[in-house]
Simulated assay, not measured.
Amino acid sequence: MQPLTLDDIRQLPAVVDLMTAARAFGLGRTLAYELARRGDFPCPVHRIGRLYRVHTSDLLQALDTTR
């Protein structure tokens, strides 16, 4: 699966699931969930029940400093 570009990310809704955020960083499913559980994901992750969600603005901010 191809990582998302900054242009792709700018077109996303305000909140995305963990796998969409993981694609932006080029991370696989297992590593993404492991990092989220440990609190080590590259940007803030919000847990809502069993779901992990990421604000697109947080994702863009984290990527702007890494790219």
Rank of each mutant, 00 (worst) to 15 (best):
M1K: 11
L60W: 14
L35C: 06
H46F: 13
R47F: 04
T56A: 08
G26P: 08
L59V: 12
L35N: 05
H55N: 06
D64V: 13
F41W: 02
D64H: 14
S57W: 05
G39M: 06
L31H: 06
T20M: 03
G49H: 11
L51M: 13
D64K: 13
V16K: 02
I9N: 03
A24Y: 03
T65K: 15
V15C: 12
R67Y: 07
L51C: 09
T56I: 08
R38L: 15
F41M: 00
T30S: 11
H55S: 04
L18V: 01
R29K: 13
G28R: 09
M19H: 10
M19T: 14
S57Q: 13
V16L: 04
M19Y: 06
R50T: 09
T5P: 07
H46T: 14
V45K: 01
G28W: 06
Y52P: 02
I48L: 14
I9T: 05
A36S: 10
F25P: 04
Q2V: 03
P13Y: 11
R47Q: 14
V54Q: 00
D64L: 11
R37I: 03
P3L: 05
L4R: 03
L31D: 04
A24I: 07
L60P: 06
Q2E: 13
P44A: 15
L31Y: 11
R29C: 05
Q11C: 12
T30P: 01
L60V: 13
R23K: 13
R29S: 13
Q11F: 03
A36I: 08
F25Q: 07
Q61I: 12
L6C: 08
I48F: 12
D17L: 02
A36L: 11
R29H: 12
F41S: 01
L6S: 12
R38D: 08
A32K: 04
G26M: 10
A21T: 03
A24V: 09
G49V: 03
T56Y: 04
Q11K: 15
A14M: 13
A32T: 05
